[in-house]
Amino acid sequence: MSHRSNPESLTPPTPGRSRNMAAIRRRDTKPERAIRSLLHAAGKRYRVDVRLDLEGARPRPDILFTRARVAVFVDGCFWHCCPEHGRQPSVNGGYWGPKLERNIARDRNADAALQDAGWTVVRVWEHEDPGDAAEHILSVLEAASPEQRRTRR
């Protein structure tokens, strides 16, 4: 019998596992800090972990450039199912499978809501080189048209 068909696999994590999960940072992760440091060194100023109340979603981009309307997410490989490093947990799959699927659905919903509201969404993986990620973000910021910048002031 596979662990997916075991009724015990549908239970939430144990108290010990819950403690470990609660200790995982939602913001200020090492990859985020590295990228933010490079963006700051490049003279860019931004807001961190600001919730946006949009039609159909309330995303919290990791890095937010309000004037340029660019929202940056630094996605963790496990939590956002990275195609290169993400993996399905071997224990309690009945809990984790749907949980991770909901994370992906929430990401897509947030992307759509942000784009519908006129934001540009940038997603980078935690495993990406911070310098490469910062360069990508800087290129997106540079591509923001002067007309968009004028109408957002």
Rank of each mutant, 00 (worst) to 15 (best):
M1F: 00
M1E: 06
S2H: 12
S2D: 10
S5V: 13
P7G: 01
P7C: 06
E8P: 00
E8R: 13
S9T: 14
S9E: 02
L10H: 14
T11K: 13
P13I: 14
T14K: 11
T14H: 03
P15G: 05
R17D: 03
R17Y: 00
R17T: 13
R17W: 00
S18N: 10
R19E: 10
N20C: 06
M21T: 02
M21W: 00
A22L: 02
A22N: 06
R26S: 15
D28W: 01
T29I: 09
K30H: 02
E32V: 12
E32S: 04
E32N: 09
R33Q: 14
A34M: 09
S37F: 01
S37Y: 03
L38A: 00
L38I: 10
L38E: 01
L39W: 01
A41I: 02
A41Q: 13
A41G: 13
G43V: 05
G43A: 04
Y46S: 04
V48A: 11
D49W: 07
L52C: 07
L52M: 08
G56S: 02
G56L: 03
A57P: 01
A57L: 05
R60C: 08
D62C: 04
I63N: 00
T66W: 02
R69Y: 01
V70I: 09
V70D: 01
A71C: 05
A71V: 11
V72C: 05
V72R: 07
F73A: 03
D75S: 04
D75M: 02
G76N: 05
G76P: 03
C77K: 08
C77D: 13
C81Y: 03
C81V: 15
C81Q: 15
E84L: 11
H85Y: 07
R87Y: 12
Q88K: 13
S90G: 12
N92K: 03
N92R: 14
G93Q: 15
G93C: 06
Y95M: 05
Y95Q: 05
W96I: 10
G97A: 12
G97H: 09
G97E: 13
G97K: 13
P98I: 15
K99V: 13
K99G: 06
L100F: 10
R102G: 04
N103L: 08
N103S: 05
I104R: 15
I104K: 12
A105H: 06
R106E: 11
D107K: 14
N109M: 08
N109W: 00
A110T: 08
A112N: 08
L114N: 10
L114I: 10
D116I: 09
T120Q: 10
V121H: 11
V122Y: 12
R123F: 02
V124S: 06
V124Y: 06
W125H: 03
W125V: 06
E126Y: 07
H127T: 06
H127Y: 10
H127S: 03
D129S: 14
P130V: 15
P130W: 06
A133W: 02
H136W: 03
I137T: 09
I137A: 02
L141V: 08
E142C: 09
P146G: 07
Q148E: 13
Q148I: 12
R149F: 02
R149G: 00
R149W: 08
R149H: 09
R150H: 03
R150W: 04
R150D: 12
T151I: 07
R152K: 07
